[in-house]
Amino acid sequence: MQFIDLAAQYQHLKTKIDKRIQTVLEHGQYIMGPEVKELEQKLADFVGVKHAITCANGTDALTLSLMALNIQEGDAVFCPTFTFFATAEAIAYEKATPIFVDSNPDTFNICSNDLEQRILAVLDEGKLKPKAIIAVDLFGLPADYEKLEALSKKYNLHLIEDAAQGFGGSITDTRGNTRKAGAFGDIATTSFFPAKPLGCYGDGGAIFTDNDEYAELIRSYRVHGKGKDKYDNVRIGMNSRLDTIQAAILLEKLAEFPVELDSRNHAAKQYTDTLQEQYKVPVVPNGYTSSWAQYTLQCDDRDKAIAEYKEKGVPTVIYYGTCMHEQTAFASLGYKLGDFPIAEKLARSVFSLPMHGYL
């Protein structure tokens, strides 16, 4: 069996996707064609925000967001240590300093209690200026944005939602108001890497915001800092556009996405019902919905469990076996083993089972 069966999804959507691609081939507007604008509007409508701006990939989405927020050298940006490298890489790329934060043992997401302690420690030291938080919706589950938004307001920090894995997830508050992943913080980002809940057939990404100023800046930065046209460059930007064929593919995948989310949640429930006596299974808090980018178990003897699944022909993957503070690229920050006990335990005990909309 496949860990993520993109072929099954394509066969299901083949006629519609092929027609969309053929339309692009016929009109020939391969860069920023009409499908890009159509996709951006439908993404904004799906998430429930004013602006959705597509770009070349999820890492660029983070970089563009940090550029719009004027993150720079001397700034401290807080992010989980248990995450994919791109989250912290984007911070370092802007010459800011990533300040790593421990994890919640049940949801895998950033721990708000540890986050506040890290903020206070940076303020006490006085060497860096606390500027922003990047929260990651790990494995499909939105982070605890009620607490995160309160902390960002308390300490006057920008909040970025990294929804690369969480797109399609949601939180319903006690008043019955539902917000979807991509609608939290000052700016949110996602990735359309093929393995993501909503993925294209290459690289792609998007940024979401209700802030008109940020949206205008991001639209400029993604095309070489353009002003009134592409030959009027008013700031230093980058080249980060979603190509039209990928937008065309995503339009058909987005139309089918709610059905696939139902299928993912059904599969996750079956996993939980079957495996909860054997492993520590994922926790979805009350009011939360996960898009199940991954179905991740915890096991003290992970190698043995993986070997048993392999014998049965079931593929598994480890997300993530190395925390950010353990990465060679961040060795100069001076973290040591034991600084993030929960995240380190997760890195040595988690493994993920197959998960997709056609399981």
Rank of each mutant, 00 (worst) to 15 (best):
A8P: 01
Q11T: 15
H12E: 11
I17Q: 06
V24W: 07
E26P: 00
M32E: 00
Q41E: 12
Q41K: 13
D45V: 05
V49S: 14
H51Q: 04
G58R: 12
T59F: 07
A61F: 08
A68Y: 03
A68M: 04
Q72W: 00
F78N: 01
C79H: 03
C79Y: 02
T83S: 15
F85A: 03
E89H: 06
A90V: 04
V101I: 03
T107C: 09
D114F: 14
D114S: 05
L115F: 14
E116I: 00
Q117P: 08
Q117C: 10
Q117I: 15
I119D: 08
I119G: 15
L120T: 11
V122R: 01
L128R: 05
L138Y: 14
F139E: 14
P142T: 04
P142K: 09
K147I: 02
L148V: 00
E149M: 11
A150T: 08
K153G: 01
H158M: 06
A164M: 12
A164T: 13
Q165C: 04
G166H: 04
F167P: 01
S170K: 02
I171G: 02
R175L: 12
R175E: 08
G176S: 06
A181F: 05
F184R: 07
T190F: 08
T190C: 14
T190W: 09
F193W: 04
A195M: 07
G202V: 02
F208A: 15
T209K: 15
E213H: 03
Y214P: 05
Y214V: 06
A215E: 03
E216T: 04
R222W: 10
H224A: 15
G237C: 04
M238Q: 13
R241I: 10
L242M: 02
T244Q: 07
A247D: 01
I249W: 02
L254V: 08
E256N: 09
V259T: 03
L261V: 00
D262V: 14
H266E: 13
H266T: 15
K269G: 10
D273Q: 12
Q278E: 13
P282A: 01
V283E: 08
Y288G: 02
Y288N: 00
T289I: 05
T289G: 03
C299D: 08
D303P: 00
I306V: 15
A307G: 06
E311H: 10
P315D: 00
Y319N: 11
G321N: 13
G321F: 06
A329T: 00
F330N: 13
A331S: 12
L337Y: 10
F340L: 10
F340H: 04
R348M: 07
F351H: 03
P354N: 11
